[in-house]
Computed example of a mutant assay.
Amino acid sequence: MVKQIIKRDGRVVDYDIKKIQEAVFKAAYYGKVNGEFIGAYHVNPVKANRLANDVATLVNQDIMNVKTDKLDIEEIQNMVVKHLNVLSKFVGLAYLSYKTQKAIERG
């Protein structure tokens, strides 16, 4: 079953697991906690990519188990945070920090 995502602006787009992988990779590789890069991931893009793939796989399983065809973007992000908190709390913090910053920018 094809899933769709309801974006913040109300648009509905097809679900794409690559978007989750990219977001987690960026949080791991470029993310900062208390102004400092997350060492193990920042210096090792392979490790950051592995984490991104693991989280995306887990979130994908969650999404496929949801009974509805459409999910809100916030639901997806909450799934990402849930799995990051288990696999890498520091990347989870960086992801949340980025998410919060974007929310502030949107007003």
Rank of each mutant, 00 (worst) to 15 (best):
Y95C: 02
K26W: 07
Q101T: 13
D54M: 08
Q77A: 09
I17Y: 04
L51Q: 03
Q77C: 07
K26V: 02
F37D: 05
G10V: 02
N65K: 14
I73D: 01
I76K: 00
N34H: 09
V43H: 15
T68F: 00
R50V: 10
A52G: 06
V33W: 01
I5Y: 07
D72F: 03
I76F: 02
I73P: 05
L96A: 11
L58M: 11
R106C: 10
V2N: 15
K82S: 00
K47P: 06
K102D: 10
D14M: 08
E74R: 13
A23F: 08
D9N: 12
F37G: 00
V2A: 12
E36W: 11
D14F: 06
E22T: 08
G107N: 13
Y41P: 11
N85R: 05
G35W: 01
L87R: 04
D16F: 04
Y95L: 05
V80A: 03
Q77F: 06
M1D: 12
S88H: 08
N44I: 03
E105Q: 10
S88V: 08
D62N: 06
I76N: 00
D14S: 11
K3H: 08
D69T: 07
D16I: 05
A56F: 00
K89G: 11
D14E: 13
N65M: 13
